[in-house]
Design a protein around this nucleic acid. Structure first.
Lengths: 239, 239
DNA sequence: TACCATTTTAACAAAGTTATAACATACTTC
DNA sequence: GAAGTATGTTATAACTTTGTTAAAATGGTA
């Protein structure tokens, strides 16, 4: 998980600031909401990794927020509340919250409990049925979950860059991708005027993929970029 | 989960009784231990679903119990302790505990937090790849329940880390696992510092496993990670 | 304390990957 | 059709990652 996104739901500004500043200093990304409705909206649209939720919100009870969120998500929810009563804690936990801290709380403890939740989340993601997503195009097959590429049932050995390029084109079959698009995706944020290696990689990819396939797969668009052709079943003789 | 089994580790008899009686009344099965060593023994041999752990034990620090348990299990651990200091909480949570209650605690809150942990456990079991008790790949066999590894019927002696690495790959046969994936799983809470040890372990694992097998099992994906190959064993009788 | 097994660190060799250059070929424009 | 530009190809060098070994730290145990 690269910089987890935490949704902070808290109407009291000083407390909210305390939390968000702390999160920021620890390298987390965050987003905040002051009301229950805003929280639900934000959690649906931004899909945060975790929610820190105050129970006393102006527009609706925190319990409602938990229940609504749980109707579609299993994201960890950590309650931070001034209600220290047992019944409140139990109600929140049973409604689907993962942890409950009573105000005033220690920032360090909050961080520790946040780490616990994220650790578990990571574990669940690692072990949950990884996207069985497999891309197929003619006899070419890319197994994203396994990180492997096949032609028929022969495995292709691709270097990381080659694999990334192929995936990028696979996820956009039929579309022309510009040079900049490739460079941005594969070489992240390096200098934009560097295309010579892209050509080299295309050459090796073609050698590795088109030769065993026996047909053209990567099409050049002069002055623009490249695209992967959509292959039909067995043999295609195009162009 | 039919009647979850809870391991209660607590040397103070009245508290222990309070907890176990409560568990009993709620329909949980339980087992108790008064010392750290007894706890570890019990958790290995009886494989409880969850552990309730007091940090102040006569023979060893509770932190040690957490760490030892975490070296082979991901069972939920709920701390119940009289130490209310932040640093104690943080140390325990970072060592692998899932929750932390300070004495005196409310029985009802403990039960609620227990339900949270079990709820999550259930979810994880539902979604984790069908946990077979024994993994077989060609002539390699890993008995998860017993924690043993065999080639043909010869037992392999693996250190804890080696065993974990092998299990991780076994549970993901055919998939490429990234370095980070290994580090997160095996070294739990250490940070994304580059771990040269991983390479060393792979080397020893290969020596221990591939040599007696007589074939390649662990494949390197440069710049990415490793994966275990699915072997088409000679000795496989049926699918 | 000293011993043992395990884990981590360090150093270097080996292997694999990526970038660069040089040249060949194809394409576009006029 | 020629000039100029863009792309394809190949080889090589620089670089990064990985494998391997040994030694040092760690931690548990008698």
């Amino acid at each position: 998980m690269n910089k987890p996104l935490v949704l902070v739901v808290e109407d009291d500004k000083p407390v909210r600031n305390l939390i968000t500043l702390t999160l920021d200093s620890q390298g987390y990304r965050y987003q905040s909401a002051e009301t229950g409705n805003a929280a639900i909206l934000a959690s649906v649209s931004h899909q945060p990794d975790l929610m820190i939720l105050d129970l006393g919100l102006p527009d609706m009870d925190g319990l409602e927020v938990i229940k609504k969120t749980r109707s579609w998500s299993n994201m960890p929810i950590i309650i931070v509340s001034s209600r220290s009563d047992d019944t409140d804690k139990i109600a929140a936990l049973d409604a689907g919250a993962d942890d409950y801290l009573t105000k005033p709380f220690s920032v360090d403890e909050l961080l520790a409990r946040l780490r616990v939740a994220l650790r578990r989340l990571q574990y669940m993601r690692d072990f949950s049925p990884a996207d069985e997503a497999v891309f197929t195009n003619g006899r070419l097959r890319v197994d994203y979950a396994a990180g492997c590429t096949y032609i028929d049932d022969e495995e292709l050995h691709l270097t990381p860059v080659e694999y990334k390029l192929l995936c990028l084109m696979a996820r956009n079959v039929g579309k022309v991708l510009t040079h900049n698009c490739f460079i941005k995706e594969v070489w992240q944020n390096t200098l934009p005027e560097d295309t010579p290696s892209l050509r080299v990689y295309m050459a090796t990819l073609r050698k590795k993929v088109e030769i065993p396939l026996g047909q053209k797969l990567i099409q050049t668009h002069v002055g623009i970029g490249y695209r992967m052709l959509r292959l039909t079943g067995d043999k295609v003789i195009s162009e």
